[in-house]
Each structure stands twice: as structure tokens, then as C-alpha cells.
């Protein structure tokens, strides 16, 4: 068997977000989440609904290198339909975070002050709506004190503290199941829904994770992230034949 990379481990961990999901739309952002959602569909969540990233649901879970013209499509989902799905709750997205804080507030809009950011990023996109309407998990390929921060500069995706403050309209369907980074797997099982370390990837120490995190991370019973099985590795190789995953994940 071949060497297992950190990216392989992240993919197997991220796929767990969609275990037992049933018939919902999986919306992955980034290479690792995209391969992970297809791995989940190929194995334990065959009813997942995946899109072509444009305006259609695709059949099966083909390699991420598949040309658009070779995809088999089963239904049209233009943006108007996507929002109906978002608001129906039948979706679990895995977004990226340029910044994420202790309670899961996420920023992908801009770094720095709102009127003159230091770095303008893409914008809030659908993060406010996603995070209060359906399951929202996060993927952070570069875990550091710059990405895991005490306070995000713009709240795009809503965390547990801000949802609580906004009241039952925001909390009713708010659910942040998982955060996967290049160092470990996290959830919000700490006190008052604070972020907790659930597992470290093999080769990473607790101290490394703590040092790379800009807030007080809850450390409970921590295990090592499981390695992908041989079956999973074979599927990952088929889904990502050119190794795009290893370019997204540092060590």
C-alpha cells in the first residue's frame, strides 16, 4: 500500500461530516471537502445529493477531474432552487474559513476594518443564511493563530454565541457539527458550545494544536484521527488521480 498523506487523513475525517446524512445536498468548498463528500457518497452515504458546481445535480460521485461535458446530470438546480434547498434545511455545507473563532463564527469577507480592509476577500456569500438554516461544517487547510482567532473581523457564518444572542429565530436550525483542519478534528462540545479538540491527526501533538490556536481550546478526551482504510484510500486515489489534495494541505 502507498504512503498515507495528511490530506488523505483530512479527507477521511471530513467525510464523517456526512455519515448518516441521508438524502440531503452536500455542498463542499475546497478540494478536501469535495473529495470527502464524494468518498462519503461512494461508501456510507449513497443518497447524498451532489452538484456540478453550476446548476445541476450529478449522478454518482465521479472523479473531481471529470470534464463538465462528461458529467451525468439528473436534475436542474439553478441558484433560485439552491436557496429553496438552503431554507428547507436539506443541506450540509462544508465551507472554508479565513478566520474562525472559539464559538464557530466564521469570516470569509475581509481581514481588517470594514470600511478599509487590509485584505479584501470574496465576501459574506451565503454564509449568514447557511449557518442558521442547515448543518454547516468548516474546513481550514492552514491552521494557525491567523485562522483560529480570538475574534473574527466580520461575522459571516454565525457561531453559537451570536446565534444564542439573536434568539430562537437563529438557533432553531443552527448546527455546526464539525471543523476539520490540517492539524485535527474539532467540534463545539466544550463549555457553552466552545470549540473542543476531538482528535489530532497522526504526527501532531496537543501542544502544537494549542500553539496554533488563538483562543482557549477545550481539551477533553483526545484521540488520534483514524487513518483511512485501504478501501477509502483506493477510492480517494480514484476520485483525485492527480493529487490536488496534497497541494491544498501543508504537511
Amino acid at each position: 500500500m502507498r504512503d498515507i498523506t495528511r490530506a488523505d487523513i483530512c479527507i477521511a475525517a471530513a467525510a464523517e461530516a456526512w455519515r448518516g446524512a441521508g438524502e440531503i445536498m452536500a455542498s463542499p468548498f475546497g478540494t478536501v471537502p469535495m473529495v470527502a463528500s464524494r468518498l462519503a457518497k461512494r461508501t456510507f452515504s449513497p443518497d447524498l445529493v451532489l452538484t456540478d458546481g453550476e446548476a445541476a445535480i450529478i449522478v454518482g460521485a465521479p472523479p473531481i477531474t471529470t470534464r463538465p461535458s462528461d458529467l451525468v446530470r439528473e436534475a436542474a438546480v439553478p441558484y433560485k432552487t439552491i436557496f429553496s434547498i438552503v431554507w428547507s434545511g436539506r443541506r450540509h455545507i462544508m465551507m472554508q474559513a479565513s478566520q474562525i473563532d472559539r464559538f464557530g463564527n466564521q469570516n470569509l469577507s475581509a481581514i481588517g476594518p470594514a470600511n478599509q480592509p487590509k485584505v479584501q476577500l470574496i465576501g459574506v456569500r451565503g454564509a449568514p443564511g447557511n449557518s442558521v438554516n442547515h448543518k454547516t461544517s468548516y474546513w481550514v487547510p492552514d491552521h494557525s493563530t491567523k485562522t483560529f482567532v480570538a475574534a473574527v473581523d466580520t461575522v459571516c457564518g454565525v457561531g453559537y454565541d451570536r446565534a444564542e444572542a439573536a434568539g430562537p429565530g437563529a438557533t432553531r436550525f443552527h448546527d455546526l457539527p464539525l471543523v476539520v483542519s490540517n492539524l485535527g478534528v474539532f467540534d463545539f462540545s466544550g463549555p457553552g458550545h466552545a470549540m473542543a479538540l476531538r482528535s489530532m491527526h497522526p504526527g501532531v501533538t496537543v501542544d502544537e494544536v494549542i500553539a496554533a490556536t488563538g483562543f482557549d481550546l477545550h481539551i477533553g478526551d483526545v484521540v488520534e484521527t483514524p487513518l483511512p482504510t485501504d478501501e477509502q484510500l483506493a477510492i480517494i486515489d480514484e476520485l483525485d488521480p492527480k493529487g490536488a489534495r496534497d497541494r491544498e494541505v501543508k504537511a
Partner: peptide, 22 residues
């Protein structure tokens, strides 16, 4: 009306944006 925006800065940052009770 929508849930979207509640708790986020698309509401908190702009005083011209309002909420309404059902």
C-alpha cells in the same frame, strides 16, 4: 422575512437593517 442574516454582521453592521417579530 428570513432567518438568514440573524446573528451575522450583515445585520449587526448596518443600522438600516431591521428585524421583525413573527
Amino acid at each position: 422575512p428570513a432567518r438568514a442574516g440573524l446573528g451575522s454582521d450583515v445585520l449587526a453592521r448596518y443600522p438600516e437593517m431591521k428585524t421583525i417579530a413573527s
